[in-house]
């Protein structure tokens, strides 16, 4: 192919890629660079001043409460990912293999409906359900159980995380499972594999990419969520998003909040890259 044709082809490709590149630069790379730069700024008289000082990093890394919040957030997001993945799988399995395409479309549509309303409103509605005088405890009271404290606990936080992530994880898993080659399943069954063996050795490996992407989305959303740990967990103890709010609210320490935010970004990138590497590892293609 002549070199001029090749050049034209590159320009053509670039034209289509350009919007994505511009978008990423404007709304991801630009703010990220600014956030990193801001973490070195100083605050004087409630006003941010440009500087290149390590004070904010030293301050935050030297505080036990930062590390406590960091590991708590990691723990809660991991728990959320495990619970959501486990809860979503049977539902997604049923939708992918046990119902007709028409029913599946309707149920996926129903799973999308919660996203039409504000997450904050959905979270506040849990107050009525989980309060000590709420719906769940009233029902349990009929059979002589409770009341149990569910609000302002880690359980409450997890319920909030599920409100945010579970429908999405079910949808992603469903699409992933629905695309598994049915011939592979039939072949495994014909060779005498039990149902559990088919799931563990054929379906899950075949749908690995989608399952892992669903889990990654769940982790990312939970890790960065402010609403559930604040309103259903009672901010007790605070997660990193709450720590960011606390840091900015009192003393207006946006640079210190930027340190927390950068740490969150780094963590999420490590998790996402590791997960993607795992998802697309050679074993996945076998």
């Amino acid at each position: 192919m002549p070199s001029s044709d090749k050049k034209r082809l590159d320009y053509y490709a670039l034209t289509w890629r350009l919007p994505v590149i511009v978008w990423q630069v404007l709304f991801f790379v630009g703010p990220l660079v600014f956030m990193i730069a801001m973490s070195f700024f100083l605050v004087k008289n409630y006003r941010m001043t440009e500087a290149f000082e390590m004070k904010n990093w030293v301050k935050m890394f030297g505080k036990d409460y930062f590390w406590d919040s960091y590991f708590l957030t990691l723990l809660l997001a991991s728990m959320s990912t495990i619970v959501a993945t486990c809860l979503a799988f049977p539902a997604a399995y049923g939708l992918a293999f046990k119902v007709s395409g028409n029913v599946r479309r309707w149920i996926v549509f129903l799973l999308i409906i919660p996203f039409f309303t504000s997450y904050l409103v959905r979270t506040f509605s849990w107050y009525v359900i989980l309060a000590e005088s709420g719906v769940v405890n009233n029902i349990l009271g009929v059979i002589g159980l409770g009341p149990y404290t569910m609000l302002n606990t880690r359980f409450g936080t997890l319920v909030g995380y599920m409100t945010l992530t579970l429908p999405l994880v079910v949808i992603l898993q469903t699409f992933s499972l629905a695309n598994v080659d049915k011939n592979l399943i039939e072949a495994a069954q014909n060779l005498g594999a039990s149902r559990v063996k088919v799931i563990l050795q054929v379906i899950i490996p075949s749908a690995k990419v989608g399952l892992i992407i669903g889990a990654v989305f769940c982790f990312i959303l939970s890790f960065g969520d402010f609403v559930a740990p604040y309103y259903l967990g009672g901010s007790k103890p605070p997660t990193l998003p709450i720590l960011i709010i606390d840091t900015t609210k009192s003393g207006q320490q946006w640079p210190r909040a930027a340190v927390v935010a950068v740490m969150m970004m780094v963590t999420l990138m490590i998790v996402a890259f590791t997960a993607i590497k795992l998802a697309y590892s050679r074993k996945a293609y076998r």
Binding site: S133, L151, N152
Partner: peptide, 19 residues
């Protein structure tokens, strides 16, 4: 003894519903 830390709305709700 502390059950939670609340903003304006959360303080209202937690006192109102007896949490």
């Amino acid at each position: 003894q502390v059950g939670g830390f609340f903003d304006y709305g959360g303080t209202f709700n937690s006192l109102k519903n007896g949490e």
